[in-house]
Design a protein around this nucleic acid. Structure first.
Ligand SMILES: [Mn+2]
Ligand SMILES: [Mn+2]
Ligand SMILES: [Mn+2]
Ligand SMILES: [Mn+2]
Lengths: 220, 220
DNA sequence: ATATATTTTTAGGTTAGTCTAAATTTTTTA
DNA sequence: TAAAAAATTTAGACTAACCTAAAAATATAT
């Protein structure tokens, strides 16, 4: 039987909140992420548990079962492929595609996904640097650093973002910080941890700790 | 306020059943087309009337209001543009795209539709020969003939289909009858109105009245 | 023109997904 | 470790979209 939009969204969110080590996700965290109330979450959890998509013991939080994980990864695959389409083919900015992909990700049809994937040239990453699961459901999260972990005078490559909010992405656009940019940390301010960074050997700019915390980078 | 998938489907179907001259559509016809029961249709009609999308007087059938017509045409525009995308860009057959477009047509976002339209090169017709409404909502139905109206020895161009069923479209594929094909009527059988037609000056084949009734053509 | 058949609406229910308020369980604090 | 706080679940309701069965309106046929 088919899963509803709502069920798919829950599974995707549980996957995200559960993290790499599959830690239990709380009812309140889900209520927050789904913009619903805790009571509504409890109802949905009972249903997902009945369908065998999550492990759920009252008051103990939830994790995905293997079959729930499979569904979540399929949705993530579709979400990220559609984002690539919107940016690469239709010319949207990386700050504009999230909400649209949030709808497109629920269009059913295996063959649609696979044809889309081929049309896009089997991309490995979405416009925000997030890895795209392959057709078999393998999703390997690269081991990126957060910019706050980088020392003064180190040069790193910008690989992704943790915050996907349009306002953050637009801020990066204005600063010239795009995927693949070379970031050299020139100075870190002891007081507030703000940093002075040079982008692509060009302009130097100040970024707040808030920004540094949301930038995924990689040593070269 | 936003219209639901269900409401959009009703409006689209009312538009189709209402035809060019905007004739009243009956509750039963809608029940048939939506695969629901008449009682369910009545419920929905009351709601659509309250929203000002249809003209509805009990027992008298319904027609679209101007605002309902606008919504219907937007949905049709999206449906047909997505079908072009699926066929032209993703390589689907014209017999495979209807159900997927039936979902994609409900994705909201004006800008998405306009960017998709531009990406596709502002197509005027969908893969079944149906006209695509423009961004302003203008939809002009071309004046095609049905193949049954064509006399023996006339040559016509294949312009579209009335039946969109996969089985019918696959049958046309096997017969080599594609959009743009030249069809010359060689002979019409008096008894069952089946016909002998030559396709693109090449092979001659027999087609039943059932097929002829569903082929839209144009004199050259 | 009246009786019969058909169509449509109303009445009363169901399910999915949501809500608020109250009860219960778990966690934290003193 | 008992009391207070926080998190979670339960109880009871709501809306959208559907259903069946019965009633009412319209159309058809004698
Ligand atoms: Mn979603
Ligand atoms: Mn993304
Ligand atoms: Mn539809
Ligand atoms: Mn079509």
């Amino acid at each position: 039987m088919q899963n509803s939009f709502t069920e798919e969204n829950y599974l995707k969110i549980i996957h995200a909140l559960s993290g790499r080590d599959g830690v239990e996700v709380s009812t309140n965290a889900l209520a927050e992420s789904t913009s619903t109330r805790a009571a509504s979450v409890t109802d949905m959890l009972r249903k997902l548990a009945e369908k065998g998509l999550i492990h759920y013991k009252k008051y103990q939080g939830v994790t995905l079962t293997e079959s729930g994980e499979k569904v979540a990864i399929k949705v993530i695959r579709k979400h990220r492929l559609w984002e690539v389409f919107l940016v690469e083919k239709l010319g949207f900015g990386w700050d504009e595609v999230h909400d649209i992909a949030e709808e497109l990700e629920h269009i059913p049809s295996e063959v649609l996904v696979e044809k889309l994937d081929a049309f896009l040239g089997h991309p490995k990453f979405d416009p925000h640097g997030d890895p795209i699961p392959d057709a078999k459901g393998n999703l390997t999260e690269p081991d990126y650093l957060i910019l706050t972990d980088v020392q003064v005078s180190e040069k790193v490559l910008m690989m992704g973002v943790l915050d996907h909010a349009p306002s953050f992405l637009q801020h990066l656009d204005r600063s010239g910080i795009t995927l693949g940019a070379v970031i050299e940390v020139k100075e870190i301010n002891e007081y507030d941890k703000s940093a002075s960074v040079q982008i692509n050997g060009g302009p130097t700019l100040f970024i707040s700790l808030e920004v540094s915390k949301n930038l995924l980078v990689q040593r070269r």
